[in-house]
Design a protein around this nucleic acid. Sequence first.
DNA 1: GCTTGACCCTGTAGTTGATACAGGGTGCAT
DNA 2: ATGCACCCTGTATCAACTACAGGGTCAAGC
Lengths: 136, 136
Amino acid sequence: MKIGELSRATGTNIETIRYYERIGLLPAPARTAANYRSYGEAHRARLSFVRHSRDLGFTIEEIRSLLDLSDDPARDCTDADRIASRHLAQVEAKIAQLTTLRDELARIVGRCRGGAAADCRVIEALGDHRHCESAH
Amino acid sequence: MKIGELSRATGTNIETIRYYERIGLLPAPARTAANYRSYGEAHRARLSFVRHSRDLGFTIEEIRSLLDLSDDPARDCTDADRIASRHLAQVEAKIAQLTTLRDELARIVGRCRGGAAADCRVIEALGDHRHCESAH
DNA sequence: GCTTGACCCTGTAGTTGATACAGGGTGCAT
DNA sequence: ATGCACCCTGTATCAACTACAGGGTCAAGC
């Protein structure tokens, strides 16, 4: 499989595949006589793993750890669970933070009555960090 | 006010303040005889505006637009409202995306029964993109 | 008067996770 | 033989900072 085929097979940009190889996330594949990269099924599976993990928001370093684990079938699986749990906690924290932020934004937008920027409530709200309290 | 005081007054890293000046988000302040930056109340207010907007997730370019608007009191305020509304929509989209992602992660974690990585459900779930369907 | 430490300066490089060329080589069809 | 799609390496760019290196300034204490 050439890089373009692997790209289509996994929905990954060609440049991204080369990037993953460069940072050591994917092993360097064999080369053809013309120096083209030649991939097999194992590469495809590994790249799918990486893409799916990235879609779930794992960082490259987390994925590296997960790959190390799966490369060594004797190792304890609880490590993988710990990485995933910690990531889940981070995602939940991010959702909580964005929800707070959304509430504040929702309070700000829609205040505009089409007047001049001089009395714009939106700009005013952004400038004054205490508008939350003063709103109560 | 020297840069360290402005930093403490706004909770902004000193390097970040200089960065904002470099990219033209904050005006270059007057200098003392020793070439130290000397800030006034207007600078503090502007930086607070920037920080608050950044905390709400606005990009630098969005903040630049908002600042342009507030610098020109004659301009129509609906522009500010439009920027904020679009941003609110983006935040809501991000929350929705993260919520989906959290559900998938929650399904994955806790499956580990302390066995070897060879039969790790976590690693398995990450490798197989179709585990969602196969779970049903 | 001299040192110590806190502060300030400029300029450059690093971070994450890619993406976008520039400038060239390969392979196949017409 | 000449397009055209595809591949190669290497470097630069993005956002929004952060982190030095290598130096200058200032007030306090000995």
